[in-house]
Structures are given as C-alpha cells and as structure tokens.
Write a protein that binds this DNA or RNA. Structure first.
Lengths: 282, 282
DNA sequence: CGGATCGATACCCCTGAGGTATCGCTGCGC
DNA sequence: GCGCAGCGATACCTCAGGGGTATCGATCCG
C-alpha cells in the first residue's frame, strides 16, 4: 500500500464526497475514484459503499480510515524527525514541547528552568495547542514531548511519567453566591442553575449537544465565566492564571488531575532523556 | 514520502550494501540508488555516507531507519486489519492472541476458557512466538492482543492491563546440590560455578557476548539445564511445564514478574474488549 | 599494476498516474 | 412527469517517472 492511496482513502472516507475529497490531496476526482477502486481490488475489500448519489463507509473502510491515519502520522513523523535529526547534527539540537495553552503554567516554567540549568541542556521550543491536539502533534513528529493531564488526555500509545497530582477547583464569577464558600462538592456545582458546564469540541472539531456554551480555549472560557454564563471545574494550578473577576473554590470530590510528561515510544534522544529526568526530579 | 522509498531506505540502511539491499524489495541496484538519492534531496538530508567502497548510516539515517520501520509496520497493520475487518463482517470474527511459547500456559488456558464462556465470544487464534516478537506482531497487525511479561517485555506504545504478579524460581538440574534447598537468593544462583545464565538473542537476532550458552526457546533452555550446562530464573508459573529432570527452587529476591494483556492503542473492536474484560476478571 | 567490487550514471522502455471530456444514474423541483 | 443538477464511473490521451541494462569511475586487494 502506498501513502498516496492512504491519503486519497483518508480524504474520501473523511469527506464522503469524491469531488470535495479530491481537493484535499490536490488532485481531480477521476484519479481518486480509480485509486480507491484499485485499492479495494488489491485488498479484496469494499471500503466505500457508493451509489450514484451517496457514499458511505463500510466497517472495513472505517478501520482503514483509523489505521491509515495512524500510519500516515507515522510516515510524517519519520520524515519530520529525520529532518530534525539532521538539523541537530549541524548545531541546532532543539526539543519541541507541546502543552495545552493555559495549563500547568507554573510547572512548565519550573521544568524549563530546571532543565536549562542542567549540563548539556538544549533549546526547548514550547508549542501551545488547543484541547486534545497534543496527541496528534506527538504522533506525527511535530513535537517531541508533551505535558498531558489525566483523566482529560489519553497516554495511550506513548511513554509517560507522572509528575504531580492535584485537586480541582470550581471557577465562578467573582460575585457568585457560592464564591464565598470555603469548599464545594460536585453536586453543588451541578446544581447551580443558569451556570451550565461548557462544552468542549470533540476531536473532529464538532461540539456535543447540550445546554452549555461552546468554548475552544481558556480565554474564551474565563470570559464566559466572568460574564456569568458558565462555570468550570479546573485543576488547582490554573488559579495562577485566573483573571481577577473570577473566583476559585476547591471542589472536594472532583476527580484529581495528574500531570504527566509523555513522549513517543522508542525515542532515544539524549536531550529528551535529560528533559524527562529534570521533570521527574521536580 | 512513499512507502516504496521507505522500504528501499530501510533495506539499504539495514544491509549497508546496495546490491544485496536491492534483492529484498525485489528490484535492481540502480533504481534503489536513485530512490535514496532523491529522498535525500527531498528531505534535504544526508541519510547514507557512501564512498565507492563502503556505505555507513548517518545520524539522520538511523533515525529514518527506526521511524521508517515503525511507519511501515503501521501501514502493514492498516492493510491487515482492514482485511480482517472485512472478513469478520462476513462471518469470521476472530481474534489473534500472541504469547511467548511456554509462558503463562495455565493463565492462557484459563483465559481462553473464561472468554469462550462469555456470550458473544468469537474464535481466538493463539500464535506462539519467540522471545520479543510479540511487540512486532502486535504493531504490524498480525496479532490483535498479546500476553506480555514485565520486566522482560516492554509495553511501550500499547494499551495494557495487569493480570497477575508472581515470584520467580531458579530452575536447576534435578541432581544439583542446590536443588534440595527450600529457597535461594540471586547471589546463590549467580555464584553457582559452571552453571552460567544463558544468553537470549537481541531483537536483531544476534547474541550478546558472555559466558552462558545461546538459547532461542524454552525447549532448548530446559534441555541445557537438564544437561547441567545452564541454570535459569523463570516465573513460578513455568513450573507447570517443567520436565521431570529439572527442579525449581523459589528465589526470594528475584524481581517479580507481571503478566499483562496488551493491545494496540485505539483498538475499538467489541471482541477485543470482551477478551480484555474476561482477562481482568480472572 | 590489473582485476574485482561497488555505487553512480546514461539511456531506453513502458507502466501507470493525472487530466479532460463525457456517460449514466439518481434525486429534486417545477 | 420531465428535465435539470449533482455525483461517481469510464474512456482516452499525455507524460512524468520508475525499472532495467550497460557502463563508468573509484577504491581495495593481491
């Protein structure tokens, strides 16, 4: 199987429309149509059920979509990491660390300081990304290492070390009746009428149905909270980055959040090992 | 990057000889030479340092070799799993479980029985493989799930659940002076003169240097022990498969062995989930 | 110094991927 | 009910580029 075929197939299975799908890989509709037909013949499998009006994924097609995307990420990672390995040989041995914007800010700066103080430390580029994007960046080689947060992020498929565990706080508008309490329970937060929990986008960018407002990043979220349109439950450490017009109250029975440092399996870079060592020593 | 280029590159980086490397992917030397040159130009990276007599891997080349092999495995897995998904839709929904020959025999049969008794259980093919091969089989899609043993196998890159933990025993010739002891320590085993620990092959099939005999599987190992040419430290559960001419004595301070069930990340098969559930219930 | 070995190059052939035009089918609207 | 619009499949052409053979040029060995 060639990556071209995988790319075509992924585009088509994603769009379920040959014309639009062809624009992604930058080709025309007939080559795409032929390529998928040929791939189906070679595998002996029907990937797409097509009538002259509609295209639907078969069971096998959805497997190929999922596995194929992972494979394409692996191919991209091979090329990116090779290029970066060559760069680092010529004097620019950098690491790219990715984390969610707004999360673990203090931990991150301590980590960067601690690592920079080590002998042989290399430059670390920090990449701030949106919710759930770390996984992809780590898998396709755009990042070397990530800070993840259990239970929100999955460490599946990566190597990881736990760094710290913390409780969560409810973030409320400053003037809210509950804002004066010493602590809350999840039931209290859930029962706040008029302050629904916000909805975060799924991995495909779509939002689940529900009552809360749609949010995409921390700034949006905090603004909505300050406006009295939402309430959120966040790790304690995010207190450090809260605006003055919102208040944080510990939630005793919220699940604890574990911050981890994660990297692709079989990474054998000395710089990465040093960074992980610095992190676990914090 | 096309898989053809990756295949050529992997072959060449593995052989370090264009002529022989060309035989692997079934082509001639000139196309291979050109393909690698072109890949180098496209990536802007020197992969192989070649004189007119010798070929050596650069740092970047070894990164591409490692990452490229992983990517090729992912592509193979995509094609294999797609084919199997199609088969399972037409009535043959099987799982392939891989484990080291001779290990966890009892646990495995209990697991298979327990799973078979569940409603909706599918056929499970058991694949017995050599040391350290499970990882590869799981990664390239030839197997769906594996029984691994920490600390011998790595679970890096997979999802896993721990099943059980056990101590280890020293396996000695039946007539050996230590065979009568109730228990031993690692120091006792190490001090046994004339009975060195055997050497297992590395992932590339080569053996590390050292005094012990080279072994490749359980049968070989037990025969060597029975002959008085080696001693081994194995998990307790292997007692069940020992020959009568060897004796097992618990080693109190040997590292404990954890048996895990592992599967590729993001597997979403109902059958796999059922098998894992049955395993964790044991 | 000549032969052997190995990677690079030149040259040719031909597969096969891409593009344009068009067909055939289907659902929708008037 | 008929025509039109939208979509995937097909036909046909073009040509880039991958494969093969022969050969060159460099290097190591005897």
């Amino acid at each position: 199987m060639e990556t071209r075929e995988l790319r075509y197939c992924a585009a088509d299975a994603g769009e379920l429309h040959y014309g639009r799908a062809a624009q992604g890989p930058g080709t025309a509709q007939p080559p795409l149509s032929r390529a998928i037909r040929q791939l189906e013949r070679r595998l002996g499998v029907t990937l797409l059920e097509r009538t002259s009006r509609t295209v639907t994924l078969t069971e096998a097609g959805s497997v190929l979509l999922r596995e194929g995307r992972a494979a394409l990420d692996a191919v991209d990672a091979a090329s990116r990491r090779t290029r970066r390995a060559a760069l680092s040989a010529t004097g620019h041995p950098g690491l790219v660390l990715v984390t969610k914007a707004g999360a673990s800010a203090e931990l991150l700066s301590k980590l960067l300081d601690a690592y920079a103080a080590e002998p042989g430390a290399v430059a670390v580029d920090v990449l701030l990304c949106g919710i759930g994007e770390q996984e992809r960046l780590l898998r396709d080689g755009r990042a070397d290492v990530a800070l993840l947060h259990r239970p929100f992020d999955s460490t599946v498929g990566f190597d990881a070390e736990e760094l710290c565990t913390e409780g969560q706080v409810a973030v409320l508008p400053a003037g809210h009746p509950l804002a004066g309490r010493a602590h809350l329970r999840m039931a209290d937060v859930a029962a706040v009428s008029g302050l629904p929990l916000p909805r975060w986008p799924c991995r495909d960018g779509a939002y689940p149905d529900g009552p809360g407002p749609e949010v995409r990043d921390h700034a949006q979220l905090l603004q909505l909270i300050a406006l009295g349109r939402a309430v959120a439950v966040l790790p304690e450490s995010s207190r450090a980055v809260l605006r003055p017009d919102v208040t944080a109250v510990p939630v005793l029975d919220a699940p604890t959040v574990t911050t981890l440092i994660a990297w692709p399996p079989h990474s054998r870079s000395r710089a990465l090992a040093g960074l992980v060592r610095a992190a676990t020593r914090l």
